[in-house]
Write a protein that binds this DNA or RNA. Structure first.
Ligand SMILES: [Mn+2]
Ligand SMILES: [Mn+2]
Ligand SMILES: [Zn+2]
Ligand SMILES: [Zn+2]
Lengths: 147, 147
DNA sequence: AACTATATAGTAATTATTCTTAATTGTCAA
DNA sequence: TTGACAATTAAGAATAATTACTATATAGTT
């Protein structure tokens, strides 16, 4: 459970980041941010839209979608696995790991026996059936960190 | 570089899996599989389609797309992070990890100091700027493993 | 209160995926 | 080797997801 204090701290952070990036604080943005903070289910833009339209009936989906993208861009929220682009296939079925460039989207294989051998926490293996485990690193590839 | 021997072994595996699942070996499927094996770039269905249409000019995108989905389903290939569904947002910016159910798509948070402290291989940190690192476990959630 | 850059709603366009249908083809048993 | 037949295909239509456009409205400043 999250305390009211921590919640307020996050709202503060949201105001701060917005100012830093010259973004205006609008009722829509505030509502979207608050709705997002409440979510524990890694919602889609459409999920957030459906929740928020009950309070702000004439808000547009585009505003929600654009705002969430903006939040991700300025580091207020993250996009989790599931990036909303086309599916990408990997013919290499051997255990390996990925580095993903957040700028150009390229996915680069690498191998690491340390990563291969991580042990799944009991908390997870008791509740769920784990079929695969992998480490995903994200950042900028060599090409993109120049630009 | 991959040896011709390993390549053939994979083709054998492909025939085997296809038979096991009562799937017919068609020229289209074989071509798609061979094209996929060549790819080192985690291609999209459209990428594969564009490469293959040069050899089989009247193949349809749907066949390529459907075939790749089938391959994933029977464990001939994998879909990598970025599953081609809607983007999903995560307001929790603290370091944590995810379990993702391959059946219902739910993403469940978990914490692990072991996972937080994995060290990025030099090979990667020298070439790239790593911004985030996380472990992604996949499998069946408690609800889905019943069904 | 007026100004102005940014944001918004509403809509259109684009991209990605899946479905429908009729024709074709791979597999297997005779 | 030859049908029978179920699986697969191409083509186009439909749906889902995302992004773009534009005229109007507003937050933040002066
Ligand atoms: Mn890979
Ligand atoms: Mn999370
Ligand atoms: Zn890059
Ligand atoms: Zn599930």
């Amino acid at each position: 459970m999250e305390s009211k204090l921590q919640q307020n701290k996050k709202i503060e952070m949201f105001y701060q980041r917005s100012k830093e990036h010259g973004m205006k604080i609008t009722p829509q943005r505030t509502a979207i941010y608050e709705e997002l903070l409440k979510a524990k289910d890694h919602p889609t833009a459409d999920d957030i839209y459906k929740r928020i339209v009950k309070k702000i009936p004439n808000i547009s989906f585009d505003t929600v979608n654009r705002t969430l993208l903006t939040f991700s861009k300025i580091g207020i929220t993250n996009v989790v696995e599931g990036y909303g682009q086309a599916k990408r296939y990997d013919p290499d079925m051997d255990i390996h790991h990925h580095f993903r460039c957040i700028h150009c989207g390229s996915i680069i294989d690498f191998h690491s026996s340390e990563f291969d051998n991580i042990t799944v926490p009991d908390e997870i293996s008791k509740q769920f059936t784990v079929i695969s485990k992998k480490v995903v690193l994200e950042g900028l590839c060599s090409k993109c960190r120049k630009g």
